[in-house]
Amino acid sequence: MTRSTTRRTLLAGAAAAAASPFAARAQGGPDLKGTTVVFASWGGAYQDAEKVSYCEPFEKATGAKVVQDGPMNPAKFRAMIASGTPDWDVADVTGGFLEVGIKDGLFEKIDTKLITTSRIDPRFVSEYGVGCIVWSSNLGFSTTAFPNGAPKTWADLFDLKKFPGKRTLQDSPTASLEVALLADGVAADKLYPLDVDRAFKKLDVIKEHTVFWSTNSQSQQLFVDREVTAGVILNGRVYDAAQKGAKIALSWEQNIQQVDYLVVPRGSRNRDAAMRLIDTMTLAENQAKLANLIAYSPTNNEAFKSIDPKLEPWLCTAPENTKRGLVLDQAYWRDNLKKLTERWTAWKLA
């Protein structure tokens, strides 16, 4: 090692040491006693994991109290902003909604003085939200329903003869339309812009046999109750249900990947405390803790080092799984979500 590098390391170390009291203050001591921050997310096992991994360390460090709310619902979010005083201070939203919300001015700008965004992979940092997890929509299926071979591809989901039983889809056009088109033979790289008519036509095939879930816990419950034999479900939820003894497995074929972001609703009463809760999320140890609980991938690459290797096959960011997956086009959904949601609702009722 040369002298100059040693010196540089030393200097950097000294700078870090000098900066650390300041950093500690930015991180905050227990100076938020009496502040209550409302954290809204998607409920169930995921929110439980977020509570343990982000909220509790935050409470311990700052003395603030975090109230859990949910399940997160884009419509409710919007209504809250319209009312002027949002009830939520931090919300966990999908990438698609992040884009829509930025366009409609639903979020506070991320305060880089309070959040060390450099800890996060730059792909997942936005001016208005910080990515917290990467997850995927997968084909989930009952391990007891198909003794002669499990479904693998999205086309199998639509094959009611070969794979009998009820299906489940998320009660939302997002990802559901992609699934239908992939099943109909559209190549993954030719997906966008979506051929919406074709997608709905394909969905008609299973519509009569489909139960729609609106929250992730419902998707798990439907498999636990054996109400459905196959359907679209998130990778972490399959992991969680399987851990709890449910007879469920997933296929990674053409998994559709998305990112969740933490955002601060515009007009939050506790903006600064909210930003600091998001900062707590960016720490590698907290992200690793969450991943170990529910198998959603971290956005801070440091965190991968502390994830149990046994979880590797469950992570959508594992090279093997990424290779087979595709990434949801957030920009497309930003521009089409509203229109397609209306069409989706009408289609369901028809």
Binding site: N73, A75, R78, V211
Partner: peptide, 20 residues
């Protein structure tokens, strides 16, 4: 109920909460 059995009260709720 299922998707097909939506009733008026749910629609009212939707109109307010989802679409304002």
């Amino acid at each position: 109920g299922g998707a097909r059995q939506q009733m008026v009260a749910q629609l009212i709720q939707d109109q307010i909460a989802t679409f304002g």
